[in-house]
Structure formats: structure tokens, C-alpha cells
């Protein structure tokens, strides 16, 4: 993605603002003080190893998990203080692509895509069906797929249906949780292209989490790295290749040797 969009978001109230966000599960301190701003129309990618708390970060912003400490604001509203209908109203701003798509097994593809329109926005089924077909076409799926059930789809098709569902309500903010994990490189690149195009067309802010560097380079305006519960580095796509940060260098080059130690027991 080009860097102009990133500049657009600066100087305004951020779409999403995190300050000192902490979250623990028992003795496991997953997030230890996260500060992050996401501007309007900006695409941020959080990179980091497995189990570093990337998904927990997304769930805290969505209000699926409550942070132990810190501030999470969406359009200046403190998410942790919202309850009931106010929380639902705030969630209508979001669309989310889950790691394994999380499609509803009991519903056909088109109803999965139209779910937010039918149940959330109370749109009539005929109109929702029409929009679902448009959104499926936007991710490269034809009408024949609309009547299938999720169990009949391949991994790549599921991701695309999940993507169509995430954008069906034209959200202001879209989250992508490991959008290319489990896909072959070609399908991964197709998904990346779709994400770039969709975020551009919607004019939405995007927050993606991934450990796929090809994906991060393609969809990000700005990349930030999560390690041991803190964002230890932040910069543009161009800056990531020239950084001196040893943790980032080890991660993007995929080296086993470096400051990030993997607890592997050797015989």
C-alpha cells in the first residue's frame, strides 16, 4: 500500500486509540501496556510470534474481552465503559475476518454473508440476499457458491466468504485475524489483494494481525511488532527492512538465533 493514506490519519482524532492496555489470564501477563493509535483510513499490521497476545489485543478492542487496565477508545468513546445497546452500536462499526473464518455451519453461504444485515440491521431477506451476492462477487465468488454450506467450501473459499461477511455492512473499521494462515502462497496473495482493495474501497481503518511478512508488507501502511506483551517497534513498510531493532530483524528474517529465544528442549 502507498504511504499517502497513512499520512491522512495523522493530526486528527484517531479512529482507535489505546493507552496502557493490560490483560492477564492468571499469572500469564499477555498484554503489559499497549499504546496504539489507528487513524481514519489507515491500515496497521501487528506482527509477532504465536502466543504473543495478538488475538487478545483484537478481542479487547472489540469488547469480547475486558482489559484489566488501560484505555480503549473508538471514535473517542471508551469501549470498556459501554454496555448493552451502546456496545452493540459500537460493534456495528466493525467487521472482522476470523482466523478460520468462523462461518456459521448451520447457515448457507449467502446467509452467513448477510447475517449482520438481517439480524443486526433488521434488513429484509430479499434485499440482504441481493447485497450478499454483491459482496460475494466482490471477493470473486459467484452465485453458485451462495447456496452452499460452509462444510462444502475449501479453506480459501471460506476465507473469502469470511471476508465478504466482514464487509457486508460497510464497516468503518475492519479487523483481519491471520488472514493468510493455512492458505497456499497464491491464494494468500489473492486474499491480500482483496484486503487492500476492500479497505481502499470502503475507506475503512484496518487492523490486521499476522506473522506472514509477505502479507504484512502488502496490506500495511504501518507495521508494529508485539513482543512479551508490549509493542516494541513501529514503522512504515519501508522502514522495517532498514531497522536496527534486533527483535524485528530476527522476526522478519525468520532466524532461530537472536534475542527472541524459543524454549526448545534439545536432547
Amino acid at each position: 500500500m502507498n504511504q499517502e493514506k497513512a499520512a491522512d490519519g495523522q493530526g486528527k482524532t484517531p479512529k482507535i486509540r489505546l493507552r496502557g492496555v493490560k490483560k492477564s489470564f492468571g499469572d500469564n501477563h499477555v498484554l503489559r501496556g499497549i499504546d496504539l493509535d489507528i487513524g481514519e483510513g489507515e491500515s496497521i499490521v501487528v506482527i509477532g510470534g504465536s502466543g504473543t497476545g495478538k488475538s487478545v489485543l483484537l478481542k479487547c478492542i472489540l469488547g469480547l474481552l475486558r482489559p484489566d487496565e488501560g484505555l480503549i477508545e473508538v471514535d473517542g468513546e471508551d469501549v470498556s465503559r459501554l454496555r448493552g445497546k451502546d456496545l452493540e452500536r459500537m460493534r456495528r462499526k466493525f467487521g472482522m475476518l476470523f482466523q478460520n473464518a468462523a462461518l456459521f455451519d448451520s447457515l448457507p453461504v449467502w446467509e452467513n454473508v448477510a447475517f449482520g444485515l438481517i439480524e443486526g440491521d433488521r434488513m429484509n431477506k430479499k434485499e440482504a440476499h441481493k447485497i450478499a451476492l454483491q459482496k460475494l462477487a466482490a471477493v470473486g465468488l459467484d452465485e453458485e457458491v451462495a447456496g452452499l454450506f460452509p462444510a462444502e467450501l475449501s479453506g480459501g473459499m471460506k476465507k473469502r466468504v469470511g471476508l465478504a461477511r466482514a464487509i457486508a455492512t460497510n464497516p468503518e473499521i475492519v479487523f483481519f485475524d491471520e488472514p493468510t494462515t493455512g492458505l497456499d502462497p497464491i491464494m494468500g496473495d489473492v486474499i491480500n489483494d482483496l484486503i487492500v482493495q476492500i479497505v481502499h474501497d470502503l475507506g475503512a481503518s484496518a487492523l490486521s494481525i499476522t506473522h506472514d511478512m509477505a502479507s504484512a508488507r502488502k496490506i500495511a501502511h504501518r507495521i508494529t511488532m508485539l513482543y512479551q506483551g508490549r509493542l516494541i517497534w513501529s514503522g512504515t513498510v519501508a522502514e522495517i527492512d532498514t531497522t536496527d531493532n534486533a527483535y524485528v530483524k530476527q522476526f522478519i528474517h525468520g532466524h532461530a538465533e537472536g534475542p527472541i529465544a524459543m524454549p526448545v528442549l534439545r536432547p
Partner: peptide, 13 residues
Amino acid sequence: TEQIDALTTLATN
């Protein structure tokens, strides 16, 4: 399989 989280993000309790 995160379908319940998906329900919540689609503003459905």
C-alpha cells in the same frame, strides 16, 4: 471455532 465471537462482532447477542 470462534462462531460465538463472530455472532458478537455481528452485533447479535
